[in-house]
Design a protein around this nucleic acid. Structure first.
Lengths: 159, 159
DNA sequence: GATAGTGGGTTCTGTTTTTGAACCTATGAT
DNA sequence: ATCATAGGTTCAAAAACAGAACCCACTATC
């Protein structure tokens, strides 16, 4: 399978990864969530090749995850901002951050902490069931055919 | 910045991505969560180059996300299984699955559904604050220095 | 009005990664 | 003796990436 065919799979994971699953995109999005919006600032903070950055920003914009917003005329300048679709990727980053904090930090602890403004506490994400509120564990889930799976297709995928 | 330097960054996102952030790893892990355990089966289901598959399984094993378990002698054979560390990546997949279901499915709906055995309902994950229980939104979070950040370091990262 | 600076790119060259196919090894089955 | 199976390794060609140089529209300065 080639990477460009991924978005045609009947699997939401494969489709999501066709947008955010390459080597740089989630780091670009990390900067977006930290309110970085301009080409030069992305480049300086990430140390990414300009050419790759231009490509990622273009693809994220085409995918509707970012939008370009003009912030001045003469000369015309635009900045990149998260759309609603982009903001909703936050749980993905949060899950990766919490996992890294727990499993990849040294004995001193995690390099950065996230504080929930609303309650004032340092917080991790708890992933609960939208129906019953219990914490979701991999081995408590089953997968079944959904409405978007054509009748003849094998169930290939999903966690 | 080169990819091999990623794991040395003072950012749990960068560190997590140094393990799961390349083109195939999360799809390999999808199969693991679906209880795929053998080389041939990974290859057939994913359509991945054998060579790349061998590399990813090796790296995931070295990272402690999978472990090799013998399942027969003469000839000696081993299968790959998720460790505790690997099982705890489930929220990452779940977040990507839910996002793909919501934003990338056609008008018919998502290709597959996940049912929570414990309550019997089709479910999405809700990401709540471990301290107050409220849903976590990107714009309600602040980032601050943690114990694992050396004193002289700039705060570079995290969502 | 020539020169330099800034933001946001594109082009070029060389190195790394990925793909797809072929090959290898130990064992067991016909 | 030959074939099949699980789990790989080796090779050539294609794609992606890194790093540096270049480009363009405009503004600010001498």
């Amino acid at each position: 399978m080639r990477w460009e065919e991924l978005d045609r799979e009947y699997c939401s994971l494969a489709r999501s990864l066709s947008i955010v699953g390459d080597r740089w995109t989630l780091l670009v999005l990390r900067e977006c969530f930290l309110r970085v919006r301009r080409f030069e600032e992305f480049e300086q903070r990430l140390g990414i090749a300009r050419h790759v950055l231009a490509d990622r920003l273009k693809k994220l914009t085409e995918a509707g995850v970012l939008r370009k917003e003009p912030y001045q005329e003469r000369p015309h300048r635009e900045e990149y901002r998260l759309t609603e679709k982009g903001l909703e990727l936050y749980p993905v980053l949060l899950a990766l951050l919490d996992w890294g904090d727990k499993w990849l930090a040294g004995p001193e602890g995690p390099p950065l902490l996230r504080r929930h403004k609303n309650c004032g506490h340092v917080a991790q994400a708890v992933h609960t069931c939208s129906a019953c509120g219990e914490e979701l564990k991999a081995r408590d889930m089953t997968v079944e055919r959904g409405p978007g799976l054509p009748p003849a297709t094998n169930e290939a995928a999903s966690g």
